[in-house]
């Protein structure tokens, strides 16, 4: 585990030096522009607009980082053959994978936390104060981070056995399908055979359920998120990531490097 930590810290350092965190500048500019615009065009719905826009931007920026950098985590090391010297040290392949995963999640956590802070500052600027109910914004940000961790795990898995381009397509595909898992589960039974119904239902439980992570509407209207949902999403992310990373390690541990 200590070795995975060494890899994780280096992955974080790589992200910082490759200027991944520069996206924060874009986010800051967007939030400043939004704050000025909201003051002029919205009457009484400042919070809704600012929170929706802020959370959407946090989610979208995080999504781009987790997909593109998530896929490159392993594929870049294989392509550039930086892995060769690393694996000559006493490092197990699963430790390397876990380290890369943890490193990018750490990067996303820092990035997301910085953006959340920016969002709160803009809320203070617009509303001139923060209320207790505004804490729901932090819950929404936490859910976004959980979602991003899941996406990183999927990107890592796909990049272990296919090309970077296909891995990006698979990851984005899983994310989009995962947004509609509930619909898949509730397809009208009368138009499908029992076998097909069972198949789609089974599939809906296998696919990552990203729907549960979306509490943007509740956050925008200051409605509290149930504690049970926070616990459920946390456990779900930990279990799902563990399964996906175990599968990735199984594939990667037998992979011939070029």
């Amino acid at each position: 585990m200590r070795r995975a930590g060494v890899v994780a810290l280096n992955t974080f350092r790589e992200a910082v030096r490759d200027r991944v965190l520069y996206n924060l500048v874009f986010f800051a500019l967007l939030m400043m522009a939004a704050a000025v615009a909201v003051g002029q065009i919205s009457i009484g719905i400042e919070q809704t607009v600012i929170v929706s826009l802020g959370l959407s931007a946090i989610s979208l920026i995080g999504l781009l980082i987790s997909v593109f950098i998530g896929v490159a985590l392993v594929s870049k090391e294989m392509d550039k053959r930086t892995l060769h010297a690393l694996l000559a040290n006493p490092v197990r392949r699963w430790e390397f994978l876990l380290g890369k995963f943890a490193g990018l999640v750490l990067t996303l956590a820092v990035n997301t936390a910085a953006m959340a802070l920016g969002l709160l500052l803009v809320m203070i600027y617009v509303k001139h104060s923060l209320e207790r109910s505004d804490a729901v914004v932090l819950v929404a940000v936490y859910f976004i981070l959980l979602k991003l961790a899941l996406i990183v795990a999927l990107a890592l898995l796909f990049s272990c056995f296919t090309t970077p381009l296909l891995a990006i397509l698979f990851t984005v595909g899983f994310y989009i399908v995962g947004l509609y898992v509930q619909e898949l589960r509730n397809l009208p039974v009368e138009v499908m055979s029992p076998a097909m119904t069972a198949f789609t239902k089974g599939l809906s439980y296998l696919l990552p359920n990203f729907e549960n992570f979306n509490v943007m509407a509740m956050a925008a209207h200051g409605r509290a998120v149930p504690g049970a949902l926070i616990l459920q999403n946390t456990v779900y992310t930990v279990v799902y990531c563990t399964i996906v990373l175990t599968a990735a390690a199984a594939v990667f541990s037998r992979r011939n490097l070029k």
């Binding site: 280096n10 550039k80 053959r81 930086t82 060769h84 010297a85 000559a88």
Partner: peptide
């Protein structure tokens, strides 16, 4: 171990 044509971070 020194790999052939080594490339590092």
């Amino acid at each position: 171990y020194l790999p052939e044509q080594p490339y590092f971070y």
